[in-house]
Simulated assay, not measured.
Amino acid sequence: MKSSSLIISTMLFCAAALVHAQDVQTVKIGLAAPLTGPQAFYGKDSQNGARLAVDELNEKKIVVGGKQLRFELLSEDDAADPKQGAAVAQRFCDLHVNAVIGHTNSGTAIPAARIYHQCGLPNLSPSATSPELTKSAYNTTFRMLANDSTLAQALAAYTVNVLKLKTIAVVDDRSAYGQGLADAFRTALRNTPVTVVTQQYTNDKAVDFSAILTAIKGRNPDGIFFGGMDPQGSAMLRQMEQLGLTRQKFIGGDGICTQGMEQRTEGMKIQDNLVCAHSGIALDRTAASRAWKKRYDDKFPGQFQMHGPYSYDAVLAVAKAMQAANSVEPQKYLPAMAKVHFAGVMSNVQFDARGEIKNPTISIYTYQDGKRRLAN
């Protein structure tokens, strides 16, 4: 009798375990970012933010369509290269992932967006800021932060009203991001007292800016605006110091508003000339954002840059849309993405008809005694 009871109990336990296993559904979240090369620290920061969100969602045991969801992050390296980014996008389509967080760079995000649209795959960029990304108005593409036009307008207003500069030189790295930001900044300066005295170009792999800076020195502007990323921005600032361009403000967007820029310019006499801006609140501004930063640092010590909070919020946006639609299938939850609204780490997450984040906050930073501080 005991033996029979034991057999029956074992069978019931196994059956329950089988049912439980069948009630778990895997949700594959693709992460597309530069994980190798000079911009790998940006990509890994985005990956970390997405990983933190995935881990926290799995702890919550979310149920959709009667099944408990198990989120899985699949990371692919696009090397900040448009061709490789397109190949990554096609791979995610072929793998039938449930959503994509990426791409990091505008140059990779823009061509990838067309591929995702063709296969009906929602993609949310945590960092690509070129307005071109949403001009096609693909219903599958969303941006988690302010675009270059919004950021440039805030920087231009600060340049005019607070810094009170009269002349400025503009430099960009000819990337989709750098060129787009520089163009937007020049446009925002129209009909203001600030004159653009020269426009110079480099590339996103350059290390020597002596010719550009010598030409700029001859025009003696009050400031230099740089559209590009911090590996080039920090080298340019160092060479400005060497050439005696020590009174000029060095202004840029989120590409130079990073931990990396702060670390690379530490000890420079003209670090205090830096002015930069990024989308979203300062992470030390609210209790919730401070708590998020602590969780990030505990899990990924010393790796924070700036994009992690946006990729974190992007994963949450996908999860909330799935819950609202009661489905993890892209074609079923995609309409719910347009209605997502929640308090994210950096801002209230809500999208407009083009997939842009609504009412983004812009934070402007300056330096004093080598320490970055919030200016607004």
Rank of each mutant, 00 (worst) to 15 (best):
V63L: 11
A336D: 03
M322T: 05
L124F: 08
S347M: 12
R190H: 13
Q25M: 11
F342E: 06
A109T: 08
S149L: 08
F304M: 08
F351V: 05
K339V: 00
Q242P: 09
I110L: 10
K269S: 14
Q153T: 13
L237W: 10
R285H: 13
S136R: 14
A137G: 09
V318C: 06
A128C: 07
G267N: 10
S210C: 00
V64E: 07
D297I: 00
A277G: 15
G233K: 09
P122K: 01
I357L: 15
K164W: 00
T129H: 05
S175W: 12
A319G: 09
G180S: 05
T108K: 07
P330E: 04
G255A: 07
S289E: 05
H103I: 06
K358Y: 10
F304K: 04
I101T: 05
T202C: 06
G280N: 03
M306S: 15
I212H: 13
Y116W: 05
R372I: 06
R70W: 01
A152Y: 02
N98K: 07
D272N: 14
Q199D: 12
A79H: 12
T258P: 02
L189C: 08
V100Q: 04
R247P: 00
N220R: 14
Q303W: 00
A235D: 13
V345P: 01
P335G: 04
S136D: 14
Q118N: 14
R264T: 07
A156R: 04
Y42Q: 14
K294F: 09
D148S: 13
K371C: 06
N203Q: 13
S210G: 02
A128L: 06
N139D: 14
A176R: 11
G308N: 01
E262F: 13
M268E: 11
C14S: 14
P193M: 04
V19T: 14
S279N: 00
L163A: 11
A99Q: 02
A338M: 04
A291F: 10
C257D: 11
K299C: 02
A40V: 03
S46E: 12
P82R: 09
I168P: 00
R372M: 15
V349A: 10
G253T: 00
K299R: 15
Q242D: 15
I110R: 10
E56R: 04
M261K: 12
G344P: 04
D208C: 05
